[in-house]
Design a binder for these strands. Structure first.
Lengths: 254, 254
DNA sequence: CTCTGTGAAACCCTTCACAGCG
DNA sequence: CGCTGTGAAGGGTTTCACAGAG
């Protein structure tokens, strides 16, 4: 499903749009911050600003989850945190393995936001025998030979690939064969996976290239249009809507 | 879109859709691989498969760039590599600074794909005085105090933020004030920036949460529907199209 | 006859604007 | 009266399907 689609009414009656799913983590983060400051309720306007989207979008998104707000008041922070967590499946624990413990893999292993909120690094795996046994972020690295056993013993369904591009597809195949059905790929390659397996990719150089495209445009415009002072004298910034958000889903049905 | 918008016809007459821009780097990577294997031409079908999209989409994307193919034959690999590079602004060199040299920042500094293809790490910046002078990936780390000077001396317009969440907005403000107009944000926060500044974010925990959402669905469906064989009896799934692609742009105009 | 380039249809997502609950 | 929830309108993106260049 990834895409779900109109096939059968998909799971139950709620077909949450992918674009909405991609924003739920953003709302959750903003709500968690409010929760920590003991703020009891928020309006769609305030929460939207904190999450970097506009309020209409936020209300529409929440409408897919149900009617969790109170008209004239706003949303109960704690209640929403719970509802969104549940919707995202974060009320359960997801064991994750990271394959490829180079610079990036190690950084990921050390990343705090990882462990928090539902995810637990079950194992670190690397092909280099010299790495075996060495602890990274307090977890001993295991050799690739153990991959299948680790996946099965820990019931891992989510794998993170941080290997060089050349090894990614092979690692991916082994992960999938061992039972992993969701993969977060940091290697700069297109992975092919069977139906039913979701892949999301994070690609640094692609992001930079997209920025370069826009940067180039700006440079071109300067010459063409105005100029003079700073291009952007503007700062108005309406604040709100912004954010990098943008990502539309990407999980593909494979 | 993000940028541009209908304001003025935007730059020139070609308004390349954001979704297309986001895929150009993918095509470029696939083409580069073909180029290295000295493949002279490719059909839309082959190239699409290599990039993980479907051929109709690829042809439509290329149609925004112009008519670079030959009917009955396909596309000339070298020529396309050049055209896409130019369109993305990769024929020029983009100096980039990375701020926050922790685990992640160091991993980014060491990332090869970074240096290649148009980007050059002009400086590494960190707030920790103890880091100053220490070389990371062969580049000595400089203290945050130097930030403005570094940006100006090197003509940097693209900045990468890899600091803890708490420091990100402040670093962002300084980068922007110093002249940076494109930011790639790895810190888990929503940044606010003035008009004219593009921000893209890469957020690990968000990606994982999206995967968890789908993972949860799969688990639920198993119980509910069919079972037996493969859960997905469904999908039309035509194979091809795949890939993580998905990303819709995200650069917002601030 | 093959494979590109592209109108047109179909979809999905966002934005608008307001009915109506509290 | 404020703020949510939501039909309806408006864009943008993807897919279809085919005209037509080579």
């Amino acid at each position: 499903m990834a895409t779900g689609r109109t096939h059968r009414p998909a799971t139950r009656s709620r077909g949450i749009p992918e674009a909405t799913v991609a924003r739920l983590p953003l709302y959750l983060r903003a709500l968690t911050a409010l929760s920590e400051r003991s703020v009891p309720t928020v309006s769609s306007e305030e929460l939207a600003a904190a999450a970097g989207v506009n309020s209409a979008k936020l209300r529409k998104d929440f409408s897919y989850l149900g009617s969790y707000g109170t008209r004239g008041v706003g949303y109960d922070v704690e209640y929403l945190v719970y509802q969104i967590s549940r919707e995202l499946g974060l009320t359960q624990d997801w064991p994750v393995v990271i394959v490829g413990i180079g610079n990036l893999g190690a950084a990921l292993a050390n990343y705090g936001g990882f462990a928090s909120r539902g995810f637990r690094v079950a194992a670190l795996i690397d092909a280099d025998p010299a790495m075996a046994g060495k602890p990274v972020a307090g977890i001993p690295v295991q050799h690739t030979d153990e991959l299948e056993k680790i996946i099965k013993d820990n019931g891992v369904s989510i794998g993170v690939i941080a290997t060089p591009a050349g090894a990614a597809q092979q690692v991916c195949d082994r992960l999938v064969a061992a039972g992993v059905t969701s993969i977060l790929n940091f290697a700069p390659t297109v992975l092919s996976v069977p139906d039913g397996v979701d892949v999301r990719k994070v690609d640094l150089s692609i992001e930079l290239q997209i920025l370069a495209f826009h940067e180039q445009r700006k440079a071109g415009e300067e010459t063409a249009a105005g100029d003079g002072a700073r291009p952007a004298a503007t700062p108005r910034e309406e604040s709100a809507d912004q954010g990098p958000d943008g990502d539309v889903p990407a999980v593909m049905p494979a």
